[in-house]
Every structure is written in C-alpha cells, then in structure tokens.
Nucleic acid binder design. Sequence first.
DNA 1: AAACTCCATGCAAAGGTTTGCATGAAAACT
DNA 2: AGTTTTCATGCAAACCTTTGCATGGAGTTT
Lengths: 347, 347
Amino acid sequence: MKKGRVTLKDIASKLKLAPSTVSRALNNHPAIGEDTKKAIKKLAEELDYQPNPMALGLLQKKSNTIGVIVPEITSHFFSAIITGIQDVIGPSEYNIMICLSNESYEEELTLVKKLSKMRVDGILVSPSSATKDFDHFRRLQNNDVPVVVFDRDCPGLEADKVLVDDYSGAYQAVEYLIRSGCTKIAHLGGPLNLSTTKHRLQGYLDALEKNKVPLRKDYIQHVKGFSHKDGIKPTKKLLELEDAPDAIFAINDNIAASAMHVAKKMGLAIPDDISIVGFDDEPHSLYFSPALSTVWQPVYSLGMLSARILLQRIKNTNSNEEFRMEVFKPELVVRASSREDSVGISD
Amino acid sequence: MKKGRVTLKDIASKLKLAPSTVSRALNNHPAIGEDTKKAIKKLAEELDYQPNPMALGLLQKKSNTIGVIVPEITSHFFSAIITGIQDVIGPSEYNIMICLSNESYEEELTLVKKLSKMRVDGILVSPSSATKDFDHFRRLQNNDVPVVVFDRDCPGLEADKVLVDDYSGAYQAVEYLIRSGCTKIAHLGGPLNLSTTKHRLQGYLDALEKNKVPLRKDYIQHVKGFSHKDGIKPTKKLLELEDAPDAIFAINDNIAASAMHVAKKMGLAIPDDISIVGFDDEPHSLYFSPALSTVWQPVYSLGMLSARILLQRIKNTNSNEEFRMEVFKPELVVRASSREDSVGISD
DNA sequence: AAACTCCATGCAAAGGTTTGCATGAAAACT
DNA sequence: AGTTTTCATGCAAACCTTTGCATGGAGTTT
C-alpha cells in the first residue's frame, strides 16, 4: 500500500485524466460527461479519497473551523452550552475548536491570537471574569472574523449576542424570598466585572427596593470564583453577623451548596432558619437535601442559538445586517431549600 | 488597510527581498545577514505577520492538531480530563479538537472519519458505551495517526493506554461495606460492554467472594446511561425486593445520588437502613446530605498523562517503541452515606 | 591577475485543490 | 462542405510556505 493519502492527482493519473476533471466530477460540475463522472466517483469511493482541507483552506482563505472560548468547562453550565453548540455545528461543514481561558484575561488573549492565526471563520465567546477590555475581539472583527458573545456580555462591543436575562432571574428569586416571609435577605454575588454578576445584583437590589425591604450593605458579599470552596468564607461572614440573614440568594448553585453546608454546620435548619436559593439549576441540585431552589437557565438552547447565529453570520459575511441580541428568560425553580410562598399562588 | 492577512510575500516585496529570504530570516536560518534579519523581523512584528498554518500543513502533510473523542462532556469526570489534556497541549504547538460521540457508535465513527479527513496528528479517545469494535481506530493507526486510549479500555486494540484500576476501586468500596457490617450488598452497574463497568463488577464480585458473602444475582442491576434519571428505576427494583439490600455500590455518583433520593423517598435512613457508595467523587458529592461516600479517581492527572504520552508518540512517530499502559489507582473516600467501619482502622 | 572560497540572497519546485480560459472534437446548422 | 455551436476535457495559475540548488559578488589565496 502506497504511503500518504490519496489525492486528486492519484485518481487522475489512474484514469488518465487531468486533476481538474476529477475535481469537477466530484463536485458535480455539469460540464463533465456522465460516464467519466461515474468512473471517477467509483474510483474515488474505492480508494477512500478525502479532499485535503488544508489545500482547500489555503485556496479559499478559510479554515472551516470555528473557535469557541469559554472560561472553563467543568461546570455543567458551560459544558451544556458547548453540547448545544456541538449539536448545531457538528452536522455542518465546520469543525469546532474549544478553548479554555481559565478565567484569565491573559490566556484569553493568547487564545484569540491562536485562533486568529488559525484563520478560524468565526468565534463564539464567553469572556473570562478578568476581562475588562474587548479590543482583542474587535481585532478579530476587523479581520472579518465574526464574533458571537454568549451568556456573559461584553458591554460596548458591537457583536451578535445571546444572553440570559439575569436581572429577571435574580428579581424573581428575591421577590419570591420576600413573599415567603424572609426579611433579611443576603446576596452572595459573583466576581465584580461580569455582566451576569452585575445584572443579578441589580435584580436583587431592585426587588428589595420595590418591596420596601431595606438594603443592608453588609448583606452583600462577593465571591472570588465560582467553585464550592469560594463560597465558604463569604457565607461565614454573613452568618456570623450580629443580625444574621434569614435568606441567601447565591450567584450559582455551587456557592449555594457551600452556603447550605456552612449553614448546616452552624446548626441552622434549612429552610426554617434560613432559606437558600441558587442560580443555574445544575442537574444534581435536585438531589441536595434539602433540594436546592434555584434559577433555571436554558443553557442548551443558548448554545444552539449562539451557534446558529454564528453560522448564519458566516454565510452572509458581506451583508451588513444588524447585530442580533437575543435574551433568554430564566425561570425560578422552587424546591425545598427555601420556605413556601406564604401568599400562595392564588392569582 | 489592505484586505487579507499579511504574507511572506508582502514582507518580501516591501523590503525588496525574496520570500525565501524572509522565511529563513524568521526561522533564524544562519545564512541570513544580521542586518537583513533584523529588518525583516522588525517589519514582521510591525505588520503582525502570522504564518499561515494551512500552507505549512499542506507542505508538511500534518495539521498540528490533535483530536479528542469523548462520549460526553457534561459530567465532571470527562470535563476534568479534558481540562488536564488542555493544560498539557495548550502550551505546545498543537491545537485540540474536542468531539462528542454522545455514547453512540455511529457518531464515533463519523467523528473518526472527520478527524482523519482533517489529517490530525494524533487522537485521544475514550470510546462510547456502544462501541464494541475498534477497527476505526486501527484504520487511523494504519494511516500513521497514533491513538491513545484513556479511561475506557478497548480490549484487543494495540495502543497506548491510560486507565484507572476500576477493579481495585470497586473492591475497596465493597470490602469496606462488608467490614462496616453490611451483608446484603447490591450493585448498580453501568452499561454492559464498557471495560470500566466490567472491571467494577468484577471487583464487586471478588470482594463478595473473598469475604464469603453469598452472591445474589437479583442484587445486580445495570443502568442504561450515566445520568441521574437512569438510576431511578433500577434502584426501585432493588429496594422493592422482598429481602431488600442494606447497601448499594453504584457505578457513579449520579446514580448513587438518585439511589439516595429513591431510598429517602421510601422512608429509608441513610446510612442506618442502607449504605450508599458512588464512584468518581464529583465535587458536589461532598455537599449531598448525607455526604456521599465514593471512589476518587485522579481525573486531571489522567488527562495530563494521556496528552503527554500522545505528544511523545507523535514526536517519535517512527521509532517502534512499545505501547505504554499506565494504570492509575483510585481511592475510596468514606463520608456519611455509609456506615462507619465497625472493625476500625487498627491495623 | 587568475583561481578559489565564502557568504548572502534568489529561483523554483512542491504540497492538493479549484477555476477561468483554451483546446479540440464532434454535432448541428446553412 | 463549410461554418457555427456545443460539449468534454486539459492547462495553468493561485493560495503560502519551505528548502535544495543556483547565482553572483566580495574577499582571499596562490
């Protein structure tokens, strides 16, 4: 067996034809005789010919690859989004290159460079929590690489965006806590310059204000990261306050889980002494005890839509269509880690 | 600003040199004069020249890309492995292409074809639970694409392998259950043709036999998939037996979580009425209540080592070095979902 | 001064594919 | 029969880079 892959030339020489003829036949160009076309296709099949994407990419100045940059992949949140992206891109002609920024601005910068070097045809990105400046994405756009931002917004960047209405999610959660009779509601917020963190905080603040619950600054703590361990200290701070809160609205389920953990260890009953609500609705949150009340986000759909928008944008790369801005609505899921709504669901 | 990326030619013509000279200068070829070299490097920097990987790939018949095939990505298990892989490959010259087979043999086949077409330089793979035949991997090897198998073995395939001693993990868990006084130990096993499932089952069986605990066939149930919902029915079957088990060793933490859920719903106390042990040690398993006893696996290291072995194999692609077979030892982590070891840890 | 060495640079091919244009032959028209 | 049309195929360039070999000039040797 000959070394190396089968090329157009190989097929051409075997059939005593020109490579161009073979190429046209395989692409169903009309100007090729039926017989030759059949013979070519048959031989290509037999030899398991597979066009060389690098030659194609070189010629057409595109890689048929799209890049995905996410801060991490170990949370269910981003891995579910990626699954949604995969399920849309997979069946298309494009390949996906997934990259992890590890919540670091520097690494994100390196990744953008790497993907740009690779001549990706488009990029899906959720910026790191350390990213404040979006010029690296603008540089991509200037190179005609479309950028779609998902979940975490990049304020000021003009691009297609697929987001979640975090404000609404937080508002729902906090208003529910108020209705259920909690009066001392704390918030475990996320890293500060994330759009999601800001919007959830605002939802929290507005829900308090609208319902005339006085705001206490010491009831707001911000975590450094999104994993369990990051929630321990801030929770302790809250619960060790003289006038400790009777409810915690946490930035995500991980933090909510460690809040529950800390609260239990301090001898508090959930939800009788303290209600706890998370965000994300990770699949296992149902299995905590008490089962965690949380805010569900349509992660899979979010991934799919982002991918679809990017594909469309790549196709109509020239048309100066307006940027799209899609916002998904999250939904509060009440379980057992928070008191029942005392008002009832009469209306 | 001119359309398209900067090429060697652009630099060459601006400096009235030949592209070959520019190429050599940038690659630090000794035969280039110091002055020219400096001038070229300066201009290249200014214009932000980035070599076209497709041209390079075409020339050298390699893509500088390695493919990763995993069954899914939403579990912490595989996403942590991928993080390990990324952390090794990222700083190297290679790119990673992550693909999800969704536990389907057909999709896995398609992915292998896709990656082969892309001329990836190597592949890291954990086969789907539906895969029984490994010829598609052999075809890759025949095309000189090295394959490294991780976590889930492909029996009969000659390749580098990085595995976990699932037998030992299961044996440790079950023997511990026996020592803690459980006598009716059930097993919620995984999909049947996975090596991991088989080895854990064998560990379970051997631990019973070694400790003279009679085997009851109706104490063994196999789940169809690895997510929570897949555990509900099989658990019910176990707990509705006339002589219900007093311990369950589950194939993973998800299944263990739903087993706990079902048991609680049926009014059983954990661990007093029934002990439950999982596998994987997902980070949130610590936060279940009771905290889940489970078997920890060095997932991150597993990912890193697999990647390192593949890189090495790619480098020495010619040398007919023997295939490596690395087996990591898992560790039992005892928490609150299982009774305390009645014997104590005296010796 | 002729012959030689050495150094810096250029030329051209190769890698696989697509595509506009040219070619050639057969078929169809007058 | 001569001219035009149609059809099938081939040629060659382009995409960008690397690399063996050729070139030319300057400096060194005899």
